[in-house]
Nucleic acid binder design. Structure first.
Lengths: 262, 262
DNA sequence: AAAGCGTTATTACCTATGTTAATTCAGCTG
DNA sequence: CAGCTGAATTAACATAGGTAATAACGCTTT
C-alpha cells in the first residue's frame, strides 16, 4: 500500500457513511438517513486493484460499476502510433462506468494509476435504487451532468488554451475536485500523476510539459512536485485561466422537482 | 427474459411518429406504440428559433429542454481573448440541455447555426415519462452515454491528432450521425458549417483549417463545399483516422434489464 | 552502497500550425 | 446586374510546441 492520502478532518473518525461518493453528494444535497443507507449499500462489495493496471478495455462489456474509494484512475484512448490521450481522471468518489446500465460496452479504456480501493455494484442495482429513492436518481443525473462538464472543460482546455494555461487550469480543477471529497491540505494536494501522464492529458509533449511546469514554478504559481503540489497563488491562477469552478459545483436546489415524485 | 406485452391495437400507429429523436431511439431499440406515443407527446409544443442566435448563456437557468427537429446548433465557450471553442454540435434528434432536470444552470452557451425547429418540454416532464415508461429512461441514459462518447471523442481529436486527421475524423462522425437520423445522401451530406466554425471546433486557426480542407480535397478524400460535402473514400478516411463509429451505435439490447421494473 | 529504473530536467534543433493581411469568390438584395 | 457582405483562399512570415538525445535525480532492491 502506498502512502495514504490524508483525509481532511483528522479529528472525526471515518464513519461507515463517510464514503467519498456520499461526501460528494452531500456537498450538493442534504440527504435523508434512508438515502445514505441506500448509498452505503452500494459500497457493500469491495475490491482492491493494483496500480498501473488496465481495468477496462475499449469494447469490453460494461458489466459492473466501480466506485473509487481510494486511489486514482484515468480513462483514455490509445492511438496506433502509440499516442495516448487521457480523457478524464477518476478520483475517490468517482464512478467508473457510470453508463454501464445504459450501454452494453465500454467506449474507452480505463487504467489504474495507484492501487485502487473500489466498491463494486451491478448496474441493475441502480434501477431498484432509483425506484426506491428517486432523489438519488436525480443526484446520479447531477453527477453525470457534472462529468459532462468536466469533459467539456477538457475540450476547452486543449482546444483553445496555451500549454501554460492548460496546465494551470487542470491543476486548479484537480485541487477543487479533491477539496470537495476532502483530500486536500490548505492549498496543496497530492497526486500520483507523472509529467508523462499529464502530458498525455493536456495533449503536450513530455518535454514541453516539463518546460511548462518549470515556468509555472519560476513564476511563483506552484511549488513542490506533482506528488505533493502547492498552489501558491490561487487567485492569480484563476485569473489567468478565467476559471470559476462553477462547473464543479452547481450547488443549488436539486430537490424541488422531486416533490412530484411519489 | 419475458417482457410484458403491451396490449395495444395494432392499427394504432401514432400519427406523427417520425421525429428525428424517435428515429434515433428506434435505431438502437425497438419501441412499443405506447412508448412512441409518449415520445410524440414530448414534441407537443414546438417553436422556431432564428439562425445565429445565442439560445443559452453559460450560467443561465436550465429551465427547459429543446429537442431539435430541424437545423443545427452548437455548444461552446468563449474565452476572454475572443477565442471560441465549440464543444459539440446539435443536429436533428439531439436534445439541448439534456441535464436540465438535474442541474440548475447551464455550464456552457448554446447558439443556433441555422434557423431551428425545436420541440420544447419542461425537464420535470421526464420524471413522469420515466416513471410511466422505464425503458425510455434507459434510452435517455443511453443517449447521455452516447453524448459522453461524442465529447470524449472530441477530446481525443484535438488532443492527439494532427489537423488533417482531426478534420477527417470529424467529417466522418458528422456523416454517421446524420445518417442515423436519415439526413444523408449516399456518401454526401449537407452542413451549415463554415470553415470559421470548424476551426473553432477543431482548435485550429481559420487559415490552417482552409489549408487542411484543401489538402483533403487534393488527396481525393472529399469534394464539394461544406454546405454539401461528399466523402470520396470512406474506407481510407476510416483507416487514416482509426475510427470505427462504434461510439455512435452501441446497438445491442438495452431492454433485458427492464424486466425487473414493474 | 551499488545497481537499476522510472521520472525529471535540459539542450539543440525542427516543424506544424498560427498571424497578419490582402485577394477572390458567391450569394443576396435592391 | 451592380454593389454588398460574409466566406474562402493565398502568401509571407512568426512561434509555440515537438523530437531526439543525454544527463541527473530519487526511489527501491539487492
Amino acid at each position: 500500500m502506498p502512502k495514504q492520502i490524508k483525509p481532511v478532518p483528522a479529528e472525526h473518525q471515518p464513519a461507515q457513511s463517510d464514503w467519498p461518493l456520499i461526501r460528494k453528494f452531500r456537498y450538493v444535497q442534504r440527504l435523508e438517513n434512508q438515502e445514505i443507507d441506500a448509498l452505503v449499500q452500494l459500497h457493500q462489495q469491495t475490491k482492491t486493484i493494483p496500480k498501473r493496471k488496465v481495468i477496462l478495455n475499449q469494447g469490453d462489456a460494461n458489466k459492473q460499476c466501480l466506485i473509487i474509494t481510494d486511489g486514482w484512475a484515468y480513462r483514455f484512448s490509445k492511438l496506433r502510433n502509440g499516442n495516448r490521450q487521457v480523457i478524464n481522471y477518476y478520483v475517490p468518489g468517482d464512478i467508473i462506468s457510470p453508463f454501464a446500465l445504459f450501454m452494453p460496452k465500454a467506449n474507452y479504456s480505463v487504467a489504474s494509476i495507484t492501487d485502487l480501493q473500489v466498491a463494486v455494484f451491478k448496474p441493475d442495482h441502480l434501477i431498484q435504487l432509483f425506484a426506491t429513492h428517486p432523489r438519488l436518481g436525480l443526484l446520479y443525473g447531477w453527477m453525470l451532468g457534472r462529468n459532462d462538464a468536466l469533459v467539456a472543460e477538457q475540450v476547452i482546455r486543449i482546444g483553445r488554451r496555451s500549454a501554460y494555461k492548460r496546465t494551470a487550469h487542470l491543476l486548479l480543477e484537480l485541487y477543487y475536485r479533491l477539496k470537495i471529497v476532502g483530500l486536500y491540505n490548505d492549498t496543496s494536494f497530492s497526486t500520483p500523476l507523472t509529467q508523462d501522464l499529464l502530458a498525455d492529458t493536456l495533449g503536450l509533449s513530455i518535454v514541453h510539459m516539463n518546460r511548462t511546469l518549470r515556468k509555472l514554478q519560476a513564476d511563483g504559481m506552484i511549488s513542490g512536485r506533482l506528488n505533493e503540489i502547492t498552489l501558491l497563488d490561487i487567485d492569480e491562477l484563476m485569473r489567468i485561466t478565467e476559471s470559476q469552478p462553477r462547473y464543479l459545483e452547481q450547488t443549488q436546489q436539486i430537490s424541488p422537482v422531486v416533490s412530484q415524485q411519489k
